[in-house]
């Protein structure tokens, strides 16, 4: 074992484990953990007209002393200005409503796939996943063409004489609902399907033998058993929907902004980095409980795999 290469190789093998876990750990710390800490720091800083547009948190006051300037004004501003509270509540409302719509549409779909002939399930699932692979932005864009005043849907309704003047659908909260339900439907169907597919069919047969009607068997057996799948689907739709940016920008009303858009406006248009950071922190705190729930669910799924 002489020469540079074999020795290097040996060293790598001895240190291998530490490298294999250490490199991704270092990467994710640098590009995920530290940036988040920076946001947290700036959210406690005072805004000022300079570059960077915020005051430092730590100020050297003597040779060996540092003072921390904890500035809570940004958070106080968020609580006192109704603009922020309104858009937070609006975001939560829209996310909750569209999650419910996703569930109502996605549950029968997942159930139908789970009860389809095994040979056809694969194809049906692929048809659910396929839109997810194609550009999200372009699929949301497609809805502008469908919903706008001289769009496809209005044309159809007008030519059928169901309406006499075009319905205003684009740039409304309704369009945001449509966009979110449409974009996140696969995220609802897939975990539901994964759960429903594992159900034991003999339970339903037993219920039928004992005289339960299908609807009753569904309510007493299938629905309770699919609880974890419902939870996963709901969280997977709700969490990203609250912070959604593209859908409300393209389809939503101009006078009612969702929180993602407000963060972006504060940062880029008002150049108020501390307020934008504080808003991001508040958004994250709101989503903390659902995120923790989802992580727990994921860990259980991985353990049972």
């Amino acid at each position: 074992m002489t020469g540079g290469r074999p020795r290097l190789w040996e060293l790598l093998e001895r240190r291998g484990r530490a490298l294999v876990s250490g490199i991704p750990l270092g990467w994710l710390s640098l590009f995920f953990l530290i940036p988040f800490l920076i946001v947290l720091k700036i959210s406690f800083s005072e805004a000022r007209l300079a570059m960077p547009p915020y005051a430092p948190l730590l100020v050297r006051t003597g040779a060996h002393t540092l003072a921390i300037h904890m500035h809570l004004e940004n958070y106080r501003l968020l609580a006192s200005d109704p603009l922020y509270l309104d858009s937070l509540l609006y975001s939560l409302r829209v996310a909750a409503g569209s999650t419910l719509c996703c569930l109502l549409l996605g549950y029968p779909m997942a159930l139908a796939i789970a009860r389809a002939h095994p040979a056809r399930r694969h194809l049906l699932l692929m048809a659910i996943i396929l839109p997810f692979w194609t550009s999200f932005l372009l699929r949301v864009y497609a809805w502008i063409g469908l919903l706008q005043d001289n769009g496809v849907i209005n044309h159809l309704l007008l030519s059928l004489h169901l309406i006499h003047q075009p319905l205003v659908m684009v740039n409304t909260t309704f369009a945001v609902y449509v966009g979110i339900v449409y974009s996140y439907l696969p995220f609802m169907v897939l975990p539901l399907y994964a759960n429903l597919e594992k159900h034991d069919a003999t339970l339903l047969e037993a219920a039928a033998d004992l005289g339960a009607r299908p609807w009753r068997a569904f309510c007493r057996i299938t629905l309770p058993l699919s609880g974890p799948g419902i939870m996963a689907g709901v969280l997977l739709v709700f969490i990203p929907a609250v912070g959604e940016f593209v859908i409300p920008s393209l389809l939503g009303p101009a006078n009612q902004l969702m929180i993602g858009r407000v963060v972006s406006n504060e940062f880029f248009e008002n150049r108020d980095w501390p307020t934008a950071s504080a808003l991001a922190i508040v958004l994250l705190l709101l989503l903390l409980a659902p995120i923790v729930l989802l992580q727990r669910y994921r860990r259980r799924e991985l353990a049972s795999a």
Binding site: L28, P35, P240, V263, A280, I291, R298
Partner: peptide, 28 residues
């Protein structure tokens, strides 16, 4: 060592709202 942190750091970005990831990376 660091397993818990690595596990948390690999799952957190999946659920982080994009707007927060974008803002924090820009500030980084």
């Amino acid at each position: 060592r660091g397993r818990g942190l690595l596990s948390a750091l690999t799952t957190a970005p999946l659920v982080m709202p994009e707007i927060i990831t974008g803002l924090s990376l820009l500030l980084l």
